[in-house]
């Protein structure tokens, strides 16, 4: 499962932008995504993936968020 692609699709849907604008290094705030938008996307992903992802980290770029979600998913797998 490619979390980056899933997240990218969510971002494109949320802010209705050209997919090429969303790279791993893109700043979330730069895209107009604020911290509540981030929580909304995480909650949607939780529903899709059927897991709880406790969100307690500051994230700046798309990659930060991808890494956070991957880390949480790995923790769940190992639990």
């Amino acid at each position: 499962m490619d979390i980056f692609e899933k997240l990218k699709a969510k971002i494109v849907e949320k802010i209705d932008c050209d997919p090429s604008k969303v790279t791993r290094d893109t700043s979330l705030i730069g895209l107009g995504i604020d911290s509540l938008d981030t929580v909304e996307m995480i909650m949607d992903l939780e529903e899709e993936l059927g897991v709880e992802l406790e969100f307690d980290e500051a994230v700046t770029t798309v990659d930060d968020l991808v890494k956070f979600i991957e880390k949480r998913l790995k923790e769940k797998e190992n639990a």
Binding site: V39, M43, F55
Partner: peptide, 11 residues
Amino acid sequence: NGQETFKFAVK
């Protein structure tokens, strides 16, 4: 904590 409050509230 705004983000956690948001999540709790919606759920």
